[in-house]
């Protein structure tokens, strides 16, 4: 492809992002390094980086997001593998896809209320377990970090599943057959052939899921019951409750940098190792 063509193809996306994303952010970045008199200050950034409270919340948010991403990956991969490889009937496959896709379309606001009904102390799970005599006191699921993770995994699973199924369906089945002809067991075939080939899907899905998890506001806000604070809720609070836009912007930028580092690391680890093996 000629340089001109590449430029032409990229231009619309890059221009719209530069114009309506980068530029607005620069305006805000500008705000975050200004004090009231208009001179430059890093006060807001220092306020964030010097405060162990905010740093520990950031760390907790990263931990929860990574954990949610990892669990989503396990569950998502399983569902993707199951739907593409085990469900043979067209009708069942149709049902499976409907089930996978429709959660995407219900707003997080209302989905969270569904969770309350399911996970609450008086919720479906606790009532069932109590009735069966498995537990004697309700387990606390809602309003804990566990509850937030469950909610995030649920909401983000479709992104992971669809990212992986698109790759999984396109793997040449002869590769897997060839592997078993060479004497590899089904599990080994999966590990040595299928899994490495799906790395691009895993990567795309994980990046999406992690990004959405770390920036999610509505789900954590509703499932935390005010008992757990994450960095996105801090940013929201700074913006919408105490109206300190400068500090809110500073925190958002700091988190953006952290996220880039994590995603970059993830790319580096997965690219260098697995993709190559898959190509071989």
């Amino acid at each position: 492809m000629s340089k001109k063509t590449v430029l032409l193809l990229l231009a619309p996306s890059v221009l719209i992002l530069l114009g309506f994303f980068v530029l607005p952010l620069i305006v805000v970045l500008n705000n975050s390094i200004m004090d009231e008199t208009g001179s430059i200050t890093f006060h807001h950034y220092l306020q964030y980086f010097k405060d162990s409270h905010y740093l520990s919340i950031t760390w907790k948010s990263i931990k929860i997001s990574l954990l949610a991403t990892f669990i989503t990956l396990l569950i998502g991969y399983f569902i993707a593998y199951f739907t593409t490889r085990y469900i043979k009937s067209k009708k069942l496959k149709r049902v499976a896809y409907i089930v996978i896709i429709s959660p995407l379309f219900t707003s997080a606001v209302v989905r969270s209320f569904g969770w309350m009904v399911i996970l609450g102390n008086n919720g479906f799970i606790n009532n069932t377990l109590l009735a069966l005599g498995i537990i004697s006191e309700p387990i606390k699921l809602l309003y804990t970090e566990t509850g937030i993770i469950i909610g995030l995994v649920y909401i983000l699973a479709p992104f992971m599943i669809l990212s992986i199924t698109t790759v999984l369906e396109n793997i040449d089945s002869r590769l897997e057959e060839a592997a078993s002809d060479l004497g590899l067991g089904p599990f080994q075939t999966f590990l040595k052939v299928t899994l490495p080939l799906t790395v691009p899907g895993i990567l795309a899905g994980s990046v999406m899921v992690f990004s959405l998890a770390i920036s999610a506001y509505v789900t954590p806000a509703m499932l935390s019951g005010g008992k757990v604070q994450l960095i996105a809720t801090v940013i929201y609070e700074q913006m919408m409750q105490v109206f300190n836009y400068q500090f809110g912007s500073a925190v958002a930028f700091a988190v953006l940098i952290f996220s880039f580092l994590i995603i970059g690391l993830n790319h580096y680890l997965l690219r260098s190792d697995w993709v190559e093996e898959g190509r071989r």
């Binding site: 209320f113 309350m116 009904v117 609450g120 102390n121 008086n122 919720g123 809602l142 309003y143 806000a221 509703m222 019951g225 005010g226 008992k227």
Partner: peptide, 20 residues
């Protein structure tokens, strides 16, 4: 010892409605 805090009228209503 609260079951949850509420950040708005709707959230409180929901807590009482669901019996939480």
């Amino acid at each position: 010892d609260v079951v949850a805090y509420f950040d708005g009228s709707g959230a409180a209503t929901n807590l009482y409605q669901s019996g939480e």
